[in-house]
Amino acid sequence: MYLYIVAGLALFVSLIFSREKTLRAVKIAARRFMMILPAFLTMIILVSIILFLIPDKVISNYLGADNKFTGVAIASFFGSITLLPGFIAFPLAGILLDKGVAYMVLAAFTTTLMMVGILTAPVEKAYFGIRVTVIRNVMSLFIALVVTVVIGLAFGEIF
């Protein structure tokens, strides 16, 4: 909600300074939005289907795998292919932690969830092209794995 307040205030201030420029800003906003709308629609469709196929219950069942390393692999997979808002993802991680799931599994899950976006790829591709999208996501997966290892070491889960 505050985004609307900020945007509204900014529009108002802009209007005081220049009517003409404000009108141009709104036009740019509308044009940019329409340009990217198909990519956003594609993303919404993908998200709605993936969340149906893989509900959070399924994720929490799989992350509790007995072997930590299997758990990390499964967690990275789910984290990469899904898109959960923070207000669902972190409470879920909190519940799993209480159930005894390792920190490194949760690190793999939350970090790939944040950084690797298969579902946001349509939007990313529309702006930056397929090559950048692939490279950035692969690098993000690598970063997530480094984070996972360091978390594992810091919480004494590896040695």
Binding site: K21, I28, A29
Partner: peptide, 17 residues
């Protein structure tokens, strides 16, 4: 919808100002 219209308005203002 909670985010995008506001974000794009700010982007428009950014581009102009």
């Amino acid at each position: 919808l909670k985010l995008l219209p506001g974000a794009f308005i700010l982007i428009g203002l950014f581009e102009v100002w």
